[in-house]
């Protein structure tokens, strides 16, 4: 099978993720969309690894997974504490990052 198709899939997944980040308000959904984007990248890395015949891409994919796992821990903690203090998981409610 032509590996390029995997790349198309990866691009598709990334776009879905990005769109989700931009248009959804629920923090959990946004968060999951980010995960989707990361995994789309992982798919691309693995595909490239296969295409080039070396292991660099797979190594990076492992890295990404580790980072993503760490990110899940921190990110979920932030979302939970945000929900606790504001009783809402909407990202638009927490527009505190301005002067």
């Amino acid at each position: 099978m032509n590996p390029v198709n995997y790349l198309y899939l990866s691009a598709l997944l990334f776009t879905i993720g990005a769109t989700g980040v931009l248009i959804r308000r629920n923090a959990i959904v946004v968060f999951m969309c980010i995960e989707l984007m990361l995994n789309a990248c992982n798919l691309a890395f693995v595909t490239f690894s296969r295409m080039h015949g070396n292991l660099d891409g797979q190594v990076i994919a492992f890295f990404t997974m580790v980072v993503a796992a760490a990110e899940v821990v921190v990110g979920l903690a932030i979302i939970v504490s945000l929900f606790r203090s504001r009783h809402s998981a909407s990202v638009d409610d927490a527009s505190l990052m301005k002067l």
Partner: peptide, 17 residues
């Protein structure tokens, strides 16, 4: 320029993308 910093995470994400 300050108006761009509106505090909405999603708008920051748009500029990043």
């Amino acid at each position: 320029l300050r108006k761009l910093q509106n505090g909405y995470a999603r708008s920051y994400a748009v500029s990043m993308f």
